[in-house]
Nucleic acid binder design. Structure first.
Length: 445
RNA sequence: GGACCCAUAGCCAAGAGGAAAGGCAAGGGACUGCAACUCCCUGAUCGUUGGUUCGAAUCCGACUGGGUCCUCCA
């Protein structure tokens, strides 16, 4: 298994710290609003990573946080006259609904910043004690000069960063690149700490939760490429300071999704919300997976629409072959896949996934399987092969999170199918059309 | 201003030194009671331009055109 590691900027062979186990953490949402389709990309992609590891036999400990302490949450709470908890609870629920809608698993570990305040304060204290952080008027800053390799992840030099013209001036900082660990404030939700009354900066939460939950360097840390700097860079710096390791062995970053060439962001106002998706969410998921995760995607309604067709085609054929097998009472979920064409497809699929999760090529294998299904469905006689290809197809779709429901036929369904078949045989096309409509309504034809 | 990435058929998109995957759309044909579905067939010297090489979409340079980060953003 090869994975591109942003930290070393190279494709690496994945070797887990503990055999048969994968520990992974993905930066989660700041819960002050709904998520847009760009936010959906890591939600879908890292779910596929998890599913693949699980499919090939790994036990995956998957953690993704909720940032529920943030300026925007406080502002929203103030403007709505409710508590921060009200705001975050509302958008956590909305987020999980969207995740489910996108076909990603929701049964992962979901720590919240507000539940980790003692650990966060202790982590900051440790950085102060070890001389990596300093306190000025109750604010705590991390001193990036203390970390020689600062900038390695995002491939930046401190000098280049300093020459950027937009770094804000802050007299309290020793180095303009130093970042805030703790901010003294009584506005909004705040906590007591040895430094002052205030709240933590946003870079410490992830690294604290990772340390608390895993107690060691993890296998994979994921997130969007746009938070590689400074967020992930800062996580590494803090982890090196406190724990002496880089927080994660492999750093994975998904590319951006841009709206018709333009950057989509809440502050720009050009946003498509996941909750408002106008197409089948599975078609959207397919659209996301049809481009390699590290490449940017230019979203447009047109490019999305072609996947609507593709998804419908796939769904119809998979349901069709299942119905045919079940109707003829020859469906064998545990059949053994021996057909060389079918094993070749699974091999191609696996090879693609093993090559840095190349889901675009994995979908090509799905299309090959679809072609075989459609060919078999013209004859509807080779039940053995039909069972094998359906099993292979379901395996691939399960990993991609594009599962298609295959509900066993009821006696009534079977009766309907039998009567339709009989009507056509008897050339009673009027009755046949009525029955066909009924079957179509039930998605059985 | 600084750092970096990308450019493959009408559209989307793999491939990363040795014969241009796949999908959508389009056209032709087959199948069909009708329709849909489905099946078969049809398409690219890989932005332009120099170079390196026996050989370049793949490596290097220049140019053009997009985009990202340096600032809250996934």
């Amino acid at each position: 298994m090869k994975i591109f590691n942003s930290y070393t900027n190279s494709l690496e062979t994945f070797v887990p710290y503990h055999e048969g186990q994968v520990s992974m953490y993905v930066c989660g949402p700041t819960v002050y609003n709904y998520i847009h389709i760009g936010n959906a990309r890591p939600v879908v992609f890292f779910d596929v990573v998890r599913r693949y590891f699980e499919a090939i036999g790994f036990t995956v400990k998957f953690v993704s946080n909720f940032t529920d302490v943030d300026d925007k949450i406080i502002q929203k709470a103030i403007s709505e006259g409710v508590s921060e908890l009200d705001v975050s609870n509302r958008f956590i629920a909305a987020f999980l609904a969207d995740v489910e809608k996108l076909g990603s698993k929701t049964d992962y570990i979901k720590p919240r910043v507000t539940e980790y305040m003692p650990q966060i304060i202790a982590y900051i204290q440790e950085m102060v004690n070890k001389g990596f952080a300093y306190i000025v008027d109750g604010d705590v800053f991390f001193s990036v000069d203390k970390i020689p390799e600062y900038g390695k992840l995002s491939n930046r030099k401190l000098d280049d960063l300093l020459s950027g013209s937009r770094i804000e001036v802050n007299d309290k900082k020793k180095n303009p690149l130093d970042f805030v660990l703790w901010k003294r404030t009584v506005e909004g939700v705040h906590w007591n700490s040895p430094f002052s009354v205030g709240r933590p900066g946003w870079h410490t939460e992830c690294v604290t939760m990772i340390d608390d939950i895993f107690s060691e360097e993890i296998d994979i840390h994921g997130g969007g490429i746009d938070i590689m700097f400074p967020h992930h860079e800062n996580e590494i710096a803090q982890s090196l300071a406190c724990k002496g390791h880089r927080c994660a062995n492999i750093w994975m970053h998904n590319g951006r999704l841009n709206l018709e060439g333009e950057k989509m962001s809440k502050s720009e106002g050009n946003v498509v919300w996941v909750k408002d998706l106008s197409v089948d969410p599975m078609a959207f998921r397919m659209f996301l997976l049809s481009t390699h995760y590290r490449a940017p995607i230019a979203y447009s309604q047109d490019s999305l629409d072609s996947y609507v067709n593709e998804w419908q085609r796939l769904k119809k054929s998979v349901i069709g072959i299942f119905v045919t097998l079940d109707y003829n009472s020859v469906y064998h979920i545990n059949c053994e896949i021996t057909d060389p064409d079918i094993t070749a497809i699974i091999s191609a699929f696996t090879e693609s996934m093993e090559n840095d999760f190349n889901t675009a090529n994995a979908l090509t294998a799905v299309n090959q399987a679809l072609k075989i299904i459609n060919n078999l469905m013209r004859q509807k006689t080779d039940y053995e092969r039909m069972n094998q290809i359906l099993k292979a197809m379901n395996y691939m779709l399960m990993i991609l999170g594009l599962s298609i429901d295959q509900v066993p036929l009821t006696a009534n369904d079977k009766d309907l199918l039998a009567r339709w078949e009989a009507a056509r045989k008897a050339k009673d096309f009027q009755l046949a059309d009525v029955l066909r409509n009924e079957l179509a309504h039930k998605n059985l034809v």
